[in-house]
Amino acid sequence: MSLDVQRQTQSLLDELAARQRWHFHHILIVALIIAFLVWCANGVDLRPRETFSAVPVIADYFGRMWPPKWSFFSEIWKPAIETLYVALWGNVLATIVGVPLGLLAASHVSSSRIVRSSAMGILNVFRSISELIWAILFVAAVGLGPFPGALALGMNYGGILGRLYAEAIENVDKGPIEAMEATGASKLQVIMFAIIPQVLPQFVSYNLYWFEVGVRSATVLGMVGAGGIGFELITAIRLFEWREVGLILLFILAMVTVIDLASTYIRSRMY
């Protein structure tokens, strides 16, 4: 090999070494990150030894849940199904909340900046307050029961879905919209014939996904008195009835799995 090529190879090797070398600022950044994480760990009582010793303790607690107390089934199937109803209505209410706000927050639909940003602002408020806090508010307003649970899911997930709807509308193909406008169609006609058909499958898929998430959330709404299986769950845990807890968790798992499978099936059929 010629001397020239050898020199060229060596210079690239040197450049590679230089790129892979640790510089002072790299070390500084890593040190700062580690210091930050140690500070965080300290704040939450996370220490290596205690964390490792917690593993067998936790395993023991889950061990106590086996075998599940099957006889308890007769008491939990009703609240379990109620959980599904709460999630279902939560999803419906979320759509009712999300569609109009989402449309108003999308630039293809509403041309006024003020309207758009206030719709987005409302969605952000709804979204940022967790369903449990909404549930506490609604329980205070309409009393204990599944109904405030559905309202709470409606508000929180309405905010989430509304923003997703708005983003979906923002990202539609603009060609058909322009083509419709060129034919002299009205704003409403453009929405109905050019925007909705494009975004509908996406809306449905968002709804399905957030219904799944909603079912999982609905299982804890009962902890604040907003219906569903959460009340039975928190009671069983407070009473240290671990085998009852085991049955409830198993039931939730079964429910969520079935819904997962169903919604995967529906989504695969949709496209």
């Binding site: 090999m1 090529v5 060229q8 190879t9 690239l12 090797l13 450049e15 590679l16 790129r19």
Partner: peptide, 15 residues
């Protein structure tokens, strides 16, 4: 690796 890159005249884009 660098020699092989040089054979196909691609060593200038190594990184």
């Amino acid at each position: 690796a660098i020699e092989c890159l040089a054979r196909v005249n691609m060593d200038h884009k190594a990184f």
